[in-house]
Nucleic acid binder design. Structure first.
Lengths: 154, 154
DNA sequence: TATTGTTATACTCTATAACTATA
DNA sequence: TATAGTTATAGAGTATAACAATA
């Protein structure tokens, strides 16, 4: 068995545990001046990254969660004026979820704060290591996703 | 703002989402021939890594969860014969939690299966990249933990 | 009086099932 | 009849508060 892999998995697991416990959403709520839980933030940031309106189903796929979960948070965020539901002109069953300008602002704050947080944590990282981490995590993401899909087929 | 960091955070978040959805514990249960939820596995693997009996409080610290959470899973695992509670000879309030030989076996299976899973996902990774991922995640783990502690002080 | 662990309770995140409206 | 989304309900994981026993 590859000792390196065991160590890598352990490190990964611990980072996840640490970040979970940190409850970043509390800080984001304070910065945004309104209550935002973690799935709220994920929906907002997903839409910001997308750069254009997206369906409820697309958000669920992107975040890898079930549809009803997205529905609930979209409804809450709509109620707070951070996004809007617009009927999809090409499919009367679907909605296009759109960030309002307020929602766009809040989403950007979330990204900036999170990035700044990691930036501070990694303040003394050399350029090469930053490049490498991005490259390797991106690759890991691809390979893990592919591996799961391969397994599904079998 | 560092674009690399934004990408790194995004990749990290997506890997977490993918792994969460994969519900590894189901496969581990099947392999072990008994129901094991995710916190069960974490407790077992923590004790295996420790290599010797540990207190409930130490397990909670190590997994970064609250005490009562550990108590519940320790009780369940004890009921299934995977571990034992032995009074700490030096402190009558505390328990030393010990893996039974059965528990040790199951914990090893969990580690092996998880490692094998990642090994398959990363099958075509060159040696250097494996080394680098281990090095960078270990470093990230250290730096994130330190950053949180620095913030706590302020 | 402080600490270890437990019991009881509640909260957050997410899933599944049943339903509705449209295709 | 299939699909997009919603409503209602349930489950997993974890936290907080109140307590017991020992230090």
């Amino acid at each position: 068995m590859d000792e390196r892999l065991t160590g890598t998995v352990a490190a990964f697991r611990q980072i996840i545990a640490t970040l979970r416990r940190e409850k970043m959403a509390g800080g984001l709520s304070r910065a945004a001046g309104m209550p935002l839980d973690q799935p709220d933030v994920q929906v907002l940031v997903y839409l910001l990254d997308a750069g254009e309106p997206r369906r409820v189903g697309a958000i669920a796929d992107g975040l890898q969660v079930a549809g009803p979960h997205v529905t609930r948070h979209v409804s809450a965020l709509e109620g707070r004026g951070l996004l809007e539901r617009v009927r999809d002109p090409e499919d009367g069953r679907a909605w296009q979820i759109t960030l309002t300008s307020e929602g766009d602002k809040v989403a950007q704050q979330c990204v900036e704060l999170t990035t700044a947080w990691f930036g501070a944590a990694m303040a003394d990282w050399p350029e090469e290591d930053r490049d490498e981490l991005l490259r390797l995590l991106t690759k890991l993401n691809t390979d893990v996703t592919e591996h799961i899909q391969r397994q599904r087929v079998n």
